[in-house]
Every structure is written in structure tokens, then in C-alpha cells.
Nucleic acid binder design. Structure first.
Lengths: 143, 143
DNA sequence: ATAGCAATTTAGCCTTGACTAACTTTAAAA
DNA sequence: TTTTAAAGTTAGTCAAGGCTAAATTGCTAT
């Protein structure tokens, strides 16, 4: 007995990977609400064409994704009009922006080149637990 | 002029996201070759049933994935038999194992709980650039 | 007022990665 | 040796997230 316990972590990875798949499913949503928030802040509104350009995907892909986000309650949109964040979307965007900033600042603080840090933060931010994020934040703030 | 240059990184994220999508496409492959390597090391051979259990997916899903890995030259397998890594697969597994270890050690070294570090490392390892990995490794080795 | 262009939407296709259900093969126990 | 349970395979479904091509809408300049 006990060979599948926490004492022998080699043998119960399933949970880790399940969480990984969940994080995965949230990534695109998070990147979109974050970007939509940025666009509204920078340009006053978020249009499909700007999202397509910034993500490097086609307008059709943006359209699909926005439909999903709308279905899931993160944005509202009317045909041929700009895209808006719901409260839920805004809250998520805020959280993501903060998280992104913490990861970015942390990477730079340990000596990663700012441009590389920008790349890596984008990938890492979706996979950092609350605890690790706290450690990052504490580390940046100089212990 | 210059508003899309590196001086204004807000405006050319497309590349970042393209790389993110690529990293994404490699994740499952990397997790599988790594796990197959582990199983061979621990149990002498890698069977579908063990992969399914460890990843928390069905045997059918494992089967699909293994076919893809075989098509892409990372593993060999014969019906109803164990799965083997090709040289290419072995090389990738080795690289992933090292990277995973560096990320894990780094997280633990900055004060993340080992169990949480294990979770996070699994997600982060696929998104860490060579440069950031070097910074992590250097940091762990006590600069 | 309308012509034309840019933006958006729609339709149809693809791959990945997941599932269930049903079937086949292998290997071990009776 | 035969039965049976476990392992593996196959077929069919689904959602996410990409794409292209074609249709539609909205805006702007004539």
C-alpha cells in the first residue's frame, strides 16, 4: 500500500495532466480578453481586424473565437460592430494582465532579456499556480 | 515610422503568438516521449495501458497519439506490443527530461513547494526559451 | 446617391486530442 | 487446452482552433 501516494509522485501524474489540459482550454480565452482589454485601452474599441493582426490569425478565426467567448459570457458583440468585455471578461482580463506583469517582471529581475521575457511570459503565465505567482511577486519586490 | 518596431512591442505580438501555437503543438509529443522514456526506465517497457493511466486518458486516445508519434518518427510500435522510442524520440525525451528538471529545481530553489513545483514545471517546461532555461540553471547552481 | 473598398460574416474543410462502444488479440488461469 | 480477463484496436463522434473562398455589410469619397 501507499505506492500511489503523494510520497511516490511518479505514479499519479494523471491529475497534473488533467490540470494541464484545463489550463490549455483557458489559454485562448485569456489571451483574447487580455488583448481586447488592451485594444479598448489603447484605441477606444476592439475590432476583429486588430485582433486578427495582433494574434497573427485570419479574420475568420477571430470570428469563431469571439463566438465562443460570447457563448461563454466573456464578451458581447453585435454583427459588424466592435467587441466589448462583459464584467466577467473584464475581471478575467484584469487578472491576466496582473499575472502577466508579475511573470514578466520576475523574468527580467532574474536576468532574462526583456524581449525574451516578453515571449516567455506569454507562454508561462497560463501555467503558473497562485502559489508560484506569489513567490515570483515576493522575489521581485526584493524578498 | 517606427511604431511597429521593437521599441513599441505592443504592436507586433503576432510572432509571439505564432510561437506559442507551435509550442502548443509540440507539448503532447514532448510529454509522451518523456513518459515513454520514464516507463522504459522504470518498468522495462512502455505499454499503452500505463500511458493511459499516467496521463488520465483512455486507451483509445493513447492509440491515436502513438500513431501520430509514429508517423512523426518519434516511436515505433507493432500491434498489441510495447512502444519504443526511436533515436529521434530518445533525443527529444532526454532534452525534455533535462529541461523539466531544471525548471523543477529552479522553482523549488526559489521557495515553491515541491508538489506545486511539480505541477507548475509540467506546464512551464514547454514554454521556456533556451535563454531563460540557462538563467534558471545558473540561478540554481548558485550563480 | 452610389461605387468601391475594407471589414465582417458564413460555409466548408482540416488536424489535434478527447470520448464511448464494440471488437480483436494476447496471455494467464483453470 | 480451453476459457476468460486484460490489453489493444477500430469506428464513429465531438469541440477547439486553425485555414480559404465567397458573400455580405458599412463607410467613405466621389
Amino acid at each position: 500500500m501507499g505506492e500511489d501516494s503523494a510520497l511516490n509522485p511518479r505514479h499519479n501524474k494523471a491529475e497534473v495532466f488533467a490540470r494541464l489540459r484545463d489550463a490549455h482550454a483557458r489559454e485562448v480565452t485569456e489571451d483574447y480578453v487580455e488583448m481586447i482589454g488592451d485594444l479598448i485601452a489603447e484605441e477606444g474599441e476592439a475590432r476583429s481586424v486588430a485582433l486578427a493582426e495582433r494574434f497573427g490569425v485570419t479574420a475568420a478565426t477571430v470570428n469563431n473565437t469571439i463566438k465562443r467567448l460570447e457563448r461563454d459570457g466573456f464578451v458581447t458583440s453585435r454583427p459588424y460592430r466592435a467587441i466589448f468585455l462583459t464584467e466577467k471578461g473584464e475581471a478575467l482580463a484584469k487578472k491576466c494582465r496582473e499575472r502577466h506583469q508579475i511573470v514578466y517582471n520576475f523574468l527580467v529581475s532574474i536576468g532574462v532579456d526583456p524581449e525574451v521575457a516578453e515571449f516567455d511570459a506569454e507562454g508561462i503565465e497560463h501555467h503558473v499556480s497562485e502559489e508560484t505567482l506569489r513567490v515570483f511577486a515576493r522575489s521581485v519586490s526584493g524578498l
